Computed example of a mutant assay.
Amino acid sequence: MTDVTRTLDDIRVPIPEGADEEVAAAVTGLYTEGVISRKQAFSREWAEQLREDIDAAFQEALSRPNGAVGRGPKRYYVEMHPEQMRGWLELVDHPWVRMVCESVLGPDYQIVELGFDVPGAGAVNQPWHRDFPMPEETRTNRRLTSLAFNATAVDTEEDMGPFEVAPTTQWDLPEGFDHEMFPPKAAYPRYEALAQRKYPKMGDISARSALTIHRGTRNDSQKSRPVLVLGVDAPGAGNAEHHDMAVTRGFYERLPQRVRDHLGCPIVETLTPITQKHSIEGLMMGEA
């Protein structure tokens, strides 16, 4: 089998000129480990409100065809509009979130996705995967062109099916990967040896390259583990075409200019419920 791994010695970490210690640490973390986090970036009250908004959006999505998409047994993904989340502005305008986006993706980054995953009771191990094929810019020039931010709506416990990530694998070439996203099972022992389980608490936030190999694990509890997803692109990354996020004109006009500058989504008079189209077929049946 072709060796798909790259050594970190081959990766140049593009720390911006004049970067302070926090910026250097964020860029280095994403280019090496592939995932970073900020503990207690938000209050527990913010996270409790997030849970309420996710629960409302989830029930609405389940009430109509294609409102939610399966990501494995008892596991769903739903996209929503910013106006469905009361704390959206606080999220995208948080200094740490803005710093990470600017430092890694450049000053003209674009917010392209808002959604959430809900691994429910009975969810099984997902296959190891990345969320989309490796872009040519990443393969050739070794540049990250997008980031996924995650904020948990609950305190994560061991039996709730924690998120599991294999650090440094954002650079793995997709040789032998199904759909360039799913590594062969022969590679699983390597990912399991690298694997780190994450136990975020309400108020924590993380940022990762969605190319870093990861999976949701088996939920043995009777509780769901909803987690928010915010997708951000560098200019030209092209992920916006896979999403239908929109804002109303009144909402847009109330935003600070520094946030408007990073919204490339349509401005509409009336929001239309999102029909999910970011389906990942290889996740439908779980690890089996």
Rank of each mutant, 00 (worst) to 15 (best):
T168W: 14
F182S: 05
G203K: 03
P162C: 06
D155K: 12
A195D: 03
P167V: 14
Q170T: 13
S221N: 02
R197D: 10
R197L: 15
G176C: 04
A151Q: 15
R225D: 03
P174M: 07
S206D: 13
M181L: 04
T169G: 06
A207K: 09
M202D: 01
V232L: 00
D155C: 12
E180C: 09
A193Q: 13
F177R: 00
A186D: 14
L211C: 08
E157R: 15
E175T: 09
E158Q: 11
Q222L: 05
A187Y: 15
K185G: 13
H179Y: 06
A187M: 15
A166G: 07
K198F: 15
G176T: 02
A207C: 05
E158C: 00
P189W: 03
E164S: 15
D172K: 06
T156H: 06
S221Q: 00
K201H: 03
H179N: 13
T152A: 12
A153P: 10
Q222P: 01
D159I: 11
Y188R: 01
L230E: 04
R225G: 00
F163L: 14
D172G: 00
D204R: 00
A187L: 15
T217H: 05
I213R: 02
K198L: 15
M181Q: 14
T168P: 13
S206E: 10
R190Y: 02
P183I: 08
M160Q: 12
T212P: 01
Y199D: 07
P184F: 01
V229R: 01
E158V: 14
K201A: 09
V229M: 12
L211D: 07
K223S: 08
G231A: 05
P167F: 15
A153H: 03
T152H: 07
L173D: 07
T212L: 09
T217A: 04
Q222A: 10
P167R: 15
L211T: 08
A210P: 15
D155V: 07
T152D: 05
L211E: 06
E164Y: 11
S224Y: 03
M202E: 03
V232I: 03
L211W: 10
D155I: 11
R215S: 07
Y199H: 09
F182D: 06
A151F: 08
S206H: 02
M202Q: 12
A166H: 09
P174L: 02
P183G: 13
D155Y: 06
D172A: 11
F177E: 03
V227H: 06
T168C: 15
S224R: 06
Y188D: 13
P200G: 09
P183R: 11
P184Y: 08
H214F: 02
L228V: 05
A186Q: 14
P174N: 01
S209P: 03
A186R: 11
E180T: 04
Y188H: 05
N219A: 02
G203S: 02
A151R: 12
S224P: 01
R208S: 14
V227K: 01
A166W: 08
L230I: 11
R225H: 06
A207P: 04
K185H: 10
Q222K: 10
A187N: 14
L230H: 02
T156A: 07
L228A: 02
A153V: 08
Q170L: 14
G176N: 05
D155R: 05
H179C: 11
Q170A: 14
Q170P: 03
K223D: 08
I213Q: 07
E180L: 11
S206A: 11
E157M: 13
E175P: 05
